[in-house]
Design a protein around this nucleic acid. Sequence first.
DNA 1: GGAATTATTGGACAGGTGCGCAATAGTGAT
DNA 2: ATCACTATTGCGCACCTGTCCAATAATTCC
Lengths: 200, 200
Amino acid sequence: MARMNPDLRRESIVAATLAVMQRQGIAATTVRDVATELGTSSGLIHHYVTSMDELITEAFERAATEDLERAAAAVSGGSDPIDRLRRFFESYTRADDDSGMQLWLDAWAEAARRPALQQASRRLNEAWQRLLCNLIKDGCAQGVMRSEDPEGTAWRLLSLLDGLTLQCVAHGDTVTREQVMLWSHRAAEMELGLPQGTLA
Amino acid sequence: MARMNPDLRRESIVAATLAVMQRQGIAATTVRDVATELGTSSGLIHHYVTSMDELITEAFERAATEDLERAAAAVSGGSDPIDRLRRFFESYTRADDDSGMQLWLDAWAEAARRPALQQASRRLNEAWQRLLCNLIKDGCAQGVMRSEDPEGTAWRLLSLLDGLTLQCVAHGDTVTREQVMLWSHRAAEMELGLPQGTLA
DNA sequence: GGAATTATTGGACAGGTGCGCAATAGTGAT
DNA sequence: ATCACTATTGCGCACCTGTCCAATAATTCC
């Protein structure tokens, strides 16, 4: 393989790791698979990374951070709090792609056994909650939403979304994507004192 | 190891597998670990079981089925629908033990890659939903609960519980057990038209 | 140009994996 | 007491795992 700028090489290794993780799952991702994905030797991976655990954590962190930033960007483009909330739900339930949620399922399951991964997973989950929570606080300040406990409201809406989406991704069709959308919209309307159908 | 009745031996193998799974996680459960747990040789396991996948699926199915039956028994001991619903929540959030939920996290993550496990996980998830759904229908028929869509209500309450409990188990304390209890109670009261505090 | 640096290779290492199989040792029937 | 039966053993097989390291090749600096 052609010699490459160290920073770019590191990038490409993380990207390849992520691709393998999404295809095979976190637990089944090996150094050799990453090397093959990249078209290089396995020794090269360890020249840039001290352990497999570190690499996996970094790849997960990268993917989850990008998803979060994409959502934050979509939200901040909204014209008002209601519109921003609508955009939040849209970017959370990306109908075209299960692999993002599958990665989260893997991370939650592995968290108990991989401290570094747990830390990353926890930090990013809290960041999602904060994004939603700030959005709600804004809506309350502007008088278009009502919530006695924005922190709790954010956790409840996020957990409902997680629980419902989980059913879609893990089991196929116990719950449909349309139901996830409809039900989480209605829950948000109830929680925030919005007229039914506001988010539809 | 002493010779044993084949049926009992099979039982003991599944039980040992479950113990290892709860300690180390589904993905990290090996034939040799099960044999050691049991105090026998690894060859014996394969004399009763054709593949490791089959064994793991069977052990998960066993554990989840027992949990479900325990919950069903607790529920059916309730004096009226409200009491039964209270018992449902109590048996779902067993504060003393994370290992049950950890097993579900593992199962949901592995489901996409292990068809047999997916089938079991899905079937048992649906059975939990049915237990709750029947409880709600009963309550509606007796006029003490209100729900336009018991099926959907059951999925929403279950998913909220899953999403919240997931945070407890995977991340430690992003959400506390008290919050899981309080918030799921309140959600049920809202969904079913019960006065606030009915389930406390 | 030559020299120093370092990205990259490919294989060695110790250990772990599921599975299969001949040999052994209990058990119950005759 | 001898038989057929089978539960149980313990090891062998081929393969996979993360990690390490000497050798090689490409690059940069002087």
